[in-house]
Simulated scan of single mutants.
Amino acid sequence: MGKIYIVTENNEDIFNFPCDYPIKIFGLSQPDFKKTVCQIVESHIGQLHANQLTIKNSSKGKYNSITIRIIATSRKQLDAINSDLQACPLVSYLL
Rank of each mutant, 00 (worst) to 15 (best):
Q77V: 10
L48C: 15
R75H: 09
S83H: 15
F33V: 01
D20R: 13
Q52G: 07
F33C: 02
H49A: 14
P18L: 05
T54Y: 08
K62H: 13
C19E: 11
V37L: 02
R69P: 07
L85A: 02
N82I: 00
A87E: 01
K35H: 11
N16F: 09
Y93N: 03
F33P: 01
Q47N: 09
S74M: 11
G27D: 11
I40A: 01
I4N: 05
L48M: 09
I68E: 04
N11C: 07
Y93T: 08
I70T: 08
D13S: 10
L95I: 11
Y21Q: 08
Q47C: 06
T54H: 09
T73V: 15
V41P: 01
F15R: 13
E12K: 08
I70Y: 03
I81V: 05
N16C: 12
Y63F: 15
F26S: 06
D84W: 02
G27R: 07
C19V: 14
S65V: 12
K76Q: 15
Q77E: 15
I55E: 13
K76S: 13
A72S: 14
Q86H: 06
K35R: 11
H44I: 01
K76G: 07
H49F: 10
K24N: 13
K3I: 10
A87Q: 03
T8Q: 04
I14G: 02
L78V: 11
S74Q: 14
S43I: 13
L85G: 01
I45R: 00
S74H: 13
G46C: 05
K62I: 15
S58V: 14
D13L: 06
A72Q: 04
L53F: 08
L53E: 06
L78M: 10
A87L: 00
Y63E: 14
N11Q: 06
A72K: 00
Q39P: 03
C38V: 02
L85W: 02
Q30D: 11
Q47S: 12
C38K: 05
I45Q: 00
L90Q: 09
S43Y: 07
G2W: 06
Y63L: 12
Q52N: 11
A80H: 07
I23F: 01
I68L: 10
F15M: 10
L28F: 12
I23T: 01
S58H: 15
S43N: 15
Y5M: 00
L28N: 09
S58P: 11
E9S: 08
I45C: 01
K3P: 03
S59F: 15
I14Y: 04
I40N: 00
N51A: 14
E12V: 02
K24F: 11
S29I: 03
I23A: 00
V41A: 04
E42L: 05
I66Q: 06
R69V: 12
